[in-house]
């Protein structure tokens, strides 16, 4: 039940981001659409790692029996999402810098008439 809810949210976020990328004409709106797709994929990965009634995979001296070990969420998707978020910021900043360079060259925020940018 919990996983299904998060799956729906992830799919909806990716769809909204895709819609933004395909229909907007402002470069900044397109980049916001990309970052929404990014968030959707992260939500999807967290949903894959969820285990029923799972806790965070962090222990201390008392709470480290084998039973408690097997009642945690999957740590591998968490680790992957951790690095993916950092990369996401770097890629978004790189996209923004190219966008600023492009806007200052073309003197417009829109991508109309730029055949190489929009199909």
């Amino acid at each position: 039940m919990m996983t299904n809810l998060l799956f729906i949210l992830a799919g909806a976020l990716v769809l909204v981001g895709l819609w933004g990328i395909l229909t907007r004409r402002n470069i900044f709106k397109i980049i916001i659409g990309f970052s929404l797709v990014d968030t959707g994929v992260h939500v999807f990965l967290v949903a894959i790692g969820y285990v029923k009634n799972g806790t965070a995979p962090i222990f201390d001296k008392e709470y480290s029996s084998l039973h408690s070990l097997l009642n945690t969420v999957d740590p591998i998707p968490s680790a992957l999402v951790l690095t993916a978020i950092v990369i996401g910021l770097a890629v978004t900043a790189l996209m923004l810098s190219f966008a600023v360079r492009l806007i200052l060259k073309n003197r417009t925020l829109l991508v109309d008439g730029k055949k190489e940018l929009k199909w």
Partner: peptide, 22 residues
């Protein structure tokens, strides 16, 4: 959903630094 590490990263990077850079 039991991933505090990811929650910290997303709160600091996704909603903090990305907004500032934008």
């Amino acid at each position: 959903y039991g991933s505090p590490d990811v929650a910290m990263t997303e709160a600091a990077i996704g909603s903090g630094l990305t907004t500032v850079v934008f």
